[in-house]
Design a binder for these strands. Structure first.
Length: 294
DNA sequence: GCGTCCAGGTCTACC
DNA sequence: GGTAGACCTGGACGC
């Protein structure tokens, strides 16, 4: 069956699907042209997960699912797709700010700035820890092993992202010997236990009223989450007054704005400071401008 | 084939 | 509060 989802006028499917590396991490998949985003979604504890294919259509999205789904499951798919592709994020003020500067005016024209995210903060959190202190290829390998081994098989192929409860039940040896996550293994085990027991409400970060520095402090209470990981997560919950500097951003900044020489973090911060609460998003758009030709 | 470096960093101990 | 050293893994690179 096909589900149609209306999108805002400034929405750009390709820019969103390819906004950062998440589309390459299971249970997401992206085609070579960045025109079809696939994803396995949970549609209820008593139903098999479903594999959906999302493509851009005029004025909206087409979400294809194998077979038919009951109304409640259709509603869950709609909700997840809207959340993942940030369809309800208010970016009008951001685009107005970007349009004021010639070097950033393309952002509003292109409809860039929607950062793809998972249906749950828990998944984004686990994946973010998988990006730290390793190559991108190792990140993909660790996430794939986690999803394939612990995720539920889906109708239409693939596996869902495992829940915190599933991770909590897995032995520490799984994270070490199967996932091969190295020193991160006890971090995942501890995090999953805290989330599954209800001690830690990471989904609440989406609607938290804490000021960003306090929310960042709360995020850093999770083992394996430092400055970069917390700031990356902040962007994924809609806070852009942080930069999330990592080695890739630093080297890209050096190439684009510093004649190939390494720049101090303070210099990078100064470069984007004028964008205030949008500086993190302005930086990311700047770094990824050439990923897609206008 | 082997050793070294380092990648989309973080933690701990120590000062 | 700032910093050195340790930490898993695996791909790239030099020899």
């Amino acid at each position: 069956m096909n589900i149609t989802i209306r999108t805002p006028p400034d929405f750009n499917f390709k820019r969103t699907a390819a906004s950062h590396g998440w589309s390459e991490l299971l249970p997401f998949r992206i085609d070579d042209k960045w025109s079809k985003l696939s994803r396995v979604l949970d549609v209820g504890a008593n139903r098999k997960p479903v594999s959906v294919e999302i493509t851009g259509a005029k004025g909206g999205l087409r979400v294809s699912v194998e077979g038919e789904l009951p109304p409640a499951a259709v509603e869950k798919v709609r909700r997840d797709v809207r959340h993942m592709l940030r369809l309800d994020d208010p970016l009008g003020v951001f685009y107005a700010e970007m349009a004021k500067e010639p070097a950033f005016a393309w952002v509003a024209r292109a409809g860039a700035g929607r950062l793809l995210r998972a249906p749950t903060v828990f998944e984004d959190l686990v994946k973010t820890v998988c990006t730290t202190n390793c190559s991108w290829s190792l990140t993909k390998t660790m996430v794939s092993r986690l999803v394939v081994n612990l995720g539920r098989p889906a109708r239409g192929g693939g596996h869902s992202f495992p829940t915190a409860a599933t991770l909590a039940e897995a032995p520490l040896s799984f994270f070490r010997e199967e996932m091969r996550s190295g020193y991160r293994a006890p971090y995942f085990k501890e995090l999953a236990g805290r989330v599954a027991s209800g001690e830690l409400d990471v989904e609440g970060w989406l609607t938290s009223e804490l000021p960003t520095p306090e929310l960042k402090r709360a995020m850093k209470q999770v083992k394996g989450v430092g400055d970069y990981a917390a700031e990356n997560l902040l962007k994924l919950v809609g806070r852009y007054d942080v930069l999330a500097l990592d080695s890739w951003v630093r080297s890209t900044y050096a190439r684009l704005h510093n004649q190939g020489r390494a720049a101090a973090d303070k210099k990078i911060a100064r470069h984007y400071a004028r964008f205030r609460e949008w500086r993190g998003l302005a930086l990311w758009c700047d770094m990824t401008k050439d990923w897609i030709k206008e």
